[in-house]
């Protein structure tokens, strides 16, 4: 995975602490997008052949190979279901997100 870490945002106390510009450190994430999701993709790694089509097609770039398996970054997955639909072996199931 090659995304910036989620950091805690500390609101500037003094005006001189505000970014000038607006220009700020690149890749500064302060919150995830998991709340957008109603369905969650769940991968059955035992049946996965590792074709990596889901990795290629995920519009959010949250699916990636990791230690011989496929990993999903649920912090930023929006639950669009593309991975599940395009999986040739149907090993990604969309499950209802539990609150």
């Amino acid at each position: 995975m090659n995304r910036p870490p989620v950091r805690k945002y500390i609101k500037p106390k003094h005006i001189s602490d505000y970014p000038v510009g607006p220009s700020f450190s690149a890749g500064y994430l302060t919150s995830d997008n998991s709340g957008w999701r109603t369905l969650r993709p769940v991968i059955d790694n035992d049946s996965c052949t590792g074709c990596l089509k889901c990795y290629l097609c995920c519009p959010e770039g949250v699916i990636y190979p990791k230690e011989g398996k496929i990993d999903i970054d649920y912090d930023f997955c929006k639950g669009c279901g593309i991975c599940s639909k395009i999986c040739r072996n149907k090993v990604i199931k969309m499950e209802k997100e539990k609150k």
Binding site: R3, P4, Y9, F24, A26, G27, Y28, T30
Partner: peptide, 12 residues
């Protein structure tokens, strides 16, 4: 949208 900035590279 400040302070959530998604690009790791130089971007504008």
């Amino acid at each position: 949208i400040y302070p959530q900035l998604c690009f790791s590279n130089n971007a504008i």
